Computed example of a mutant assay.
Amino acid sequence: MWKLNQSILGGDEEREDNSWDESEGLCSLSPMQRMYAFAACMIAGLVCMFLSLIVFAKPIKFAVLFTFGNVLAVGSTAFLIGPGQQIRMMFDPVRVYATAIYVGCVVVALICALLIHSKILTILAIICEICALLWYSLSYIPFARGMVSNLMIRLFDTEI
């Protein structure tokens, strides 16, 4: 465990920009405990998303479980980099639109499922949520969104 802590924290030197130290004021979890919490939260999110497939015939239950699993999976990284850093990264100019669309789709999916009780709207909202999550996730991979955009333009270009 000491070797893991040293490799994560960069040896014996202390760095100002270390994300582990930044979130220390919010919680007193060690780096190993944070990784366990990240893994547990990610696994719980994936389990919720998997269980949502079992109740796919009931779109309202599906939407609630799937959305909860999505939020858990995305939020799990807050254990690794800290909630403040995660929010700063989410609202970074590169991904602010992707974040807004993803959060909006999550809210719309829950409204369609819990308040409107419309199966068709719930399924459409979940499809939009999945697409928004993929686009949001691609924003963390350098040049990925540009490559996907170029691929879509090439695939669906109808000029002869």
Rank of each mutant, 00 (worst) to 15 (best):
V71M: 05
G82V: 04
D17C: 07
S139M: 09
I123Q: 14
D157L: 13
C48S: 15
E159S: 15
G75W: 11
C41H: 08
L110N: 11
V55G: 00
L65Q: 02
G11A: 07
P83W: 05
K58L: 06
I8H: 06
L80F: 10
V55S: 08
M35G: 03
R15T: 09
F56C: 08
S76G: 15
L124T: 04
E159V: 11
M1W: 08
T67L: 02
W20N: 07
L115P: 01
A113N: 10
T122Q: 05
V108N: 10
S23F: 08
Q33T: 04
E14V: 14
N18S: 08
F38P: 01
C128T: 03
R154M: 06
L4N: 09
A40R: 11
C112T: 02
L138T: 05
C112K: 08
S7T: 14
N18G: 01
V108P: 07
V74H: 03
G11Y: 00
A39D: 07
H117G: 05
S149Q: 14
L115G: 02
P31I: 01
L26C: 02
P59V: 06
V47A: 15
N5K: 13
G11W: 00
Y136G: 00
S76N: 14
S28K: 15
L53G: 13
L110Q: 07
A40C: 14
L151M: 13
G84E: 14
A63F: 01
A37R: 02
I120V: 14
E159Q: 13
L51M: 11
C131L: 15
Q6Y: 00
C131E: 09
T158G: 07
Y102T: 13
A144V: 09
V71T: 04
T122E: 10
V107K: 09
C131V: 13
I111D: 10
L9W: 00
V55Y: 00
M32H: 10
L133E: 12
E159M: 10
V106C: 11
L155Y: 10
I153A: 14
A44Y: 01
A40F: 15
S137Q: 07
L80C: 06
G82A: 07
Y140D: 05
I160N: 07
A144Q: 12
S118T: 01
M42C: 01
L155F: 12
K119E: 04
L72K: 06
V106L: 06
M32F: 11
A57C: 04
D17T: 06
I123W: 05
A63Y: 01
M147W: 14
L110R: 06
G11H: 06
V106I: 08
A132Q: 09
F143K: 11
R15C: 05
N150H: 13
W2S: 10
W2Q: 15
I130V: 15
Y102K: 15
L110P: 14
L29V: 01
A113E: 04
P31G: 03
G11Q: 03
T67N: 09
Y36C: 03
A98E: 13
L80N: 10
N5V: 11
I130H: 06
